[in-house]
Design a protein around this nucleic acid. Sequence first.
RNA 1: GCCGAUGUAGCUCAGUGGUAGAGCGCUUGCUUCCCAAGCAAGAUAUGCGGGUUCGAUUCCCGUCAUCGGCUCCA
Length: 467
Amino acid sequence: MPASTIDTVISLCKRRGFVYQCGEIYGGTKSAWDYGPLGVELKENIKRQWWRTMVQSRDDVVGLDSSVILPTRVWEASGHLAAFVDPLVECLSCHRRYRQDHLQEAYAEKKAKPGQDDIDPDTVSMDLIACANCGTKGQWTEPRMFNGLLKTYLGPVESEEGLHYLRPETAQGIFVNFGQVMTSSRKKPPFGIGQIGKSFRNEITPGNFIFRTREFEQMEMEFFVKPGDDEQWHEYWLEERMGWYTGLGVTPENLRFYEHAAEKLSHYSKRTVDIEYRFGFQGSEWGELEGVANRTDFDLTTHSQHSGSELSFHDQATGERWTPFVIEPAAGVNRSMMAFLVDAYAEDEAPNTKGGVDVRTVLRLDHRLAPVKAAVLPLSRNEALSPAARDLAKELRGYWNVDFDDTQAIGRRYRRQDEIGTPFCITVDFETLEDQAVTIRERDTMQQERVALSQVREWLAARLPGC
RNA sequence: GCCGAUGUAGCUCAGUGGUAGAGCGCUUGCUUCCCAAGCAAGAUAUGCGGGUUCGAUUCCCGUCAUCGGCUCCA
């Protein structure tokens, strides 16, 4: 059933205006998605909650918004220009593609004999290696370099001098600004710099809806600590970040930590632990929401060396100077939005007017994430009710994103709002004209309460904390 | 990028070498109407390009996209 839940949620996203395929009227662009009226609200709410939790509510974290395009020398220093390039070869017989270095390593490992020196994988001739798929030996294309960075050219002519790269992570913008931020904000380690923004990776295989795309949005925080304190801060942030998801209503059983194997760590990492969500994809059930990495002093050290700027901290209390270690919680906006949607999706049974039972689709989103906080619904489209309801909606819009809907039957409008996760529906009925009160119906319990018109704003404010 | 499957309305799906169908959804009107109600009316589709043909949504080729598998996922 989980796989079909994803399909159902994708269908809901298109139908109700959360996510559209990019450029659909021209046939679409591979794995690029646009966020519709409800999707942009949900995505903004997720980012706002992250920013509040990770930056605004903390005395030891400040924010930053750095450029997408950075000088090429940043990527040379960070190691991305070397590490993001892989040699690919293709079997001439069956056209299957492999990473050349993986083939050579596998061959060297297989042929290694006890008591002899290990074979250097780099020296293994491709003539010796057979294709694992079709068995053809030694028939390979010349290796071609696959670059995971997206390129662009700045300036009036397309030349090598104008070659720049779009950032594959927002983190480097934080590292190169480390010294200035520390000075101007007068922070001392342990402290962090948080940033939300778009990143770009030329993924070979994007897919799974908005889970893996070439253009994506990240919420990253680099937390600078004294060397030696890094491991305990790593544990601290793992717990903090897991708590962020469960605090926003994600079912704990659908979340887990995943420890990266030491040999698979990225070029900068000492230890990385992912927070994964049980999406129920075909093939792999769990998908990464966020990586919490110990980047050591790799980035600040390499930028110090390449730029000549001193990126270290002088502790006047002890007279020591050291380069901070970095703990990095890096979360994906788009994939977390998908997780929040999948986790909130429910089909309830609800009685209908005919005495039968209908299926009620409801997104049980946390109130802070819900795209629409309240809907104002006149019981009937009517010369008296509709204007009164419009006035109320107008007042409430000063505080929250509020819908107004006076079409068709009231039951249908409740169901529409349930489907997009609206916590409260406010009904203006014929009695309203007499008693100056409205009925407010709650999404999850379907319970109703009569509230005076003059008290509606306060009533909602008490039930929408942090929204 | 390779192999396989698929592409018809907003969604889910029929169907045909000769004027394109349904259900749900959507819009409008009526019904003093609290959980997908009723009645009436209405809008919307063959991914794109080429070929064969008197005529192509249907057959063929290409392309784009989606799904599954492989390679990749720092």
